[in-house]
Design a protein around this nucleic acid. Structure first.
Lengths: 356, 356
DNA sequence: CTGAAAGCGCTTACAG
DNA sequence: CTGAAAGCGCTTACAG
């Protein structure tokens, strides 16, 4: 054997052509060890500032970007989260999706999105998640309000975050707004504009936010000394159609309401459509308010006065909470329940009561 | 040094507790090498059938699931794709997103979703993608129809797939339907129902599908011997509002159309809303058709007669094409242009012409 | 504050 | 048809 390592023995082809800059390249360029580069890249605690500067210069010069697969493998973790959904409003879902995806990308986590119809047994859902090695689950309505599902998931030690639930569970973390307070404020707004006969189209009973919004509505009425007419509260299911149907019934009454608070924007759009069909002007003859500030709120005419909830931020936070849960002990992850600020957004669909 | 390897020298703590079953566990359980297990897991070509069976048994018994990070690292690739979007209909976007995400998950690829407003310079977009080591891009309208963006991306050797474009580019692959033919068939359907004065609300001019749909509309008219009244063609922009406004104008004419073909479902919903507001019954006084069969088509009342395009399948295919592009040589990936079948979906918004 | 060594769990490139 | 070896690009657990 000579001294030259290049020619020693029966060499085999190198694994593959080198593509992309690695941490070793940066280390060499900076005259440091890969370990030090790794430290700088991962926060840089306990690194001399001039060392850090040298590393940063090399990173910029070489255009280094860490290989996430290697990082996951070496770090011993790659989170895989699942977003389960069942037939929410498309606009609502896309906002949720984009937010979750953005955070998942930042955290180098995989996000799997699965439709979960109500007919599927919780045990089957758990099985599927386990199969895919899912480390945590995002649960939007109505799934977040399904006790059987929550229990099954908890029994499988699956961290979960309820998004926009009206009833935070002890088994999960949650991000939500105060639906009751928001509905209260919105209804108060209608009352302040002179409305006394106010209708409400409630949401689907399978979501806990629905009764909360109705309760906020009723509390505002009660505090203003307005007797609740139960005939003016109609059960909807969050669909455009149910808002349309409910409004047709409400507006056909001799003592029709001068304002209608719909439990979400889709139903509010349906209410406006029904009003127009019956020849009523919005907001002159009828004020209509929605809830959520989803895309449809600014699509229809007149645009909807509604409650804005920061869904994108809530979605990002939900993924972050899941990631934190993974960091702690299984079985003992810390549940957190976070409440976000909502905002009353005034647009054209609500106006002062006419002289009736 | 004794024979027992367990006690030799100054041991250091094992890297970390072993979590999850690895390929080595399966190999041991099956009495085979990891290599063989790997072969079975990855398609199983050239493995004796009883060997394969032994491996499968061990996999099932142990509940083995491959570590994707390790696979990516060893395999030398982890694809990172980006879905760029700019303000499409929320329903349309969520269907696209779910499809892309499902395929990305199956392929162990990362999907990054980024909003790209029209004001952003193509060079900045390219820079951002490069920064994130993106290997391919999904381009829905209107981005897929922006020549400057396509050129900039191509100059950066970025594989791209246009989704639902009306003008497949030589620089990209594409998945689409034949918009002209679909519009032609839809218009023919209206004509067959007795309509002669048919209006059209065209889509945003920044999307190539818009003029194609109008051309299909015009061809159907011409072939039926109906003279085109240019006054009956109004420019919209795919928004609900533009459909609403256009229909208000169209229906206020003394020679108002008996049917309106809107360039997408959002605009069709706006057209129906305007019709109702003006006291017209749909479809008795006015037939309305949409295009896309997005969620809004079955939300509004009456439900929309429209053209269904298989967006979920197209989205999955788009990701698959990107993945294939990565397999080939950079700079020479094979562009493919695939056309999907559409379907005319008949619902309640279209009916025979009344006796006018 | 910095670094040499081991190892994460897989696949590629061989050899037999 | 099957397997031993090397290596993917990082991070952890140490040592100094």
């Amino acid at each position: 054997m000579g001294q030259s390592g290049d020619t020693e023995g029966k060499g085999r082809a190198p694994r593959r052509a080198h593509v992309g800059t690695t941490i070793a390249d940066v280390a060499q360029a900076a005259g440091l060890s890969p370990m030090t580069v790794s430290r700088v890249v991962n926060g840089g605690q306990g690194v001399a500032s001039d060392t850090r500067a040298r590393v940063m210069t090399a990173i910029d010069a070489l255009g280094y970007v860490p290989n996430l697969a290697a990082r996951s493998l070496a770090g011993g973790r790659q989170d895989r989260f699942a977003l389960l959904y069942d037939n929410p409003s498309a606009a609502w879902l896309s906002e949720l999706l984009v937010g979750c995806l953005a955070q998942a990308t930042d955290l180098n986590a995989l996000l799997m999105v699965e439709r979960c119809e109500a007919e599927i047994a919780p045990s089957d859902i758990v099985r599927r998640l386990t199969c895919h090695r899912i480390d945590g689950v995002i649960l939007p309505p109505p799934l977040c309000d399904d006790p059987a599902l929550l229990t099954a998931l908890n029994d499988a030690s699956m961290p979960m975050v309820q998004v926009a639930t009206g009833h935070p569970s002890a088994l999960a973390s949650s991000v939500a707004i105060d639906d009751e307070a928001a509905a209260y404020q919105l209804t108060g707004h209608l009352i302040a504009l002179g409305h006394r006969r106010i209708g409400h189209v409630s949401g689907n009973a399978n979501q806990t936010a629905s009764p909360l919004r109705r309760v906020g509505f009723e509390r505002a009425l009660a505090e203003a000394g307005i007797a609740l007419d139960p005939e003016l509260v109609v059960a909807g299911d969050f669909s455009w159609r149910s808002g349309f149907t409910a409004a047709e019934a409400l507006l056909s009454r001799t003592d029709a309401p001068t304002a209608i608070f719909a439990g979400n924007d889709d139903m509010a759009a349906g209410v406006i459509a029904a009003a127009h069909r019956l020849g009523r002007d919005v907001p002159r003859d009828l004020s209509v308010s929605g809830f959520d500030d989803s895309a449809i709120a600014t699509s229809v005419w007149p645009e909807l006065t509604t409650i804005r909830q920061p869904l994108g931020a809530m979605a990002r936070r939900a993924i972050a909470l899941l990631s934190q849960a993974r960091t702690g002990q299984a079985d003992t992850w810390k549940r957190r329940h976070e409440c976000y600020a909502f905002e009353l957004v005034e647009r054209g669909s609500v106006g002062p009561r006419g002289n009736a």
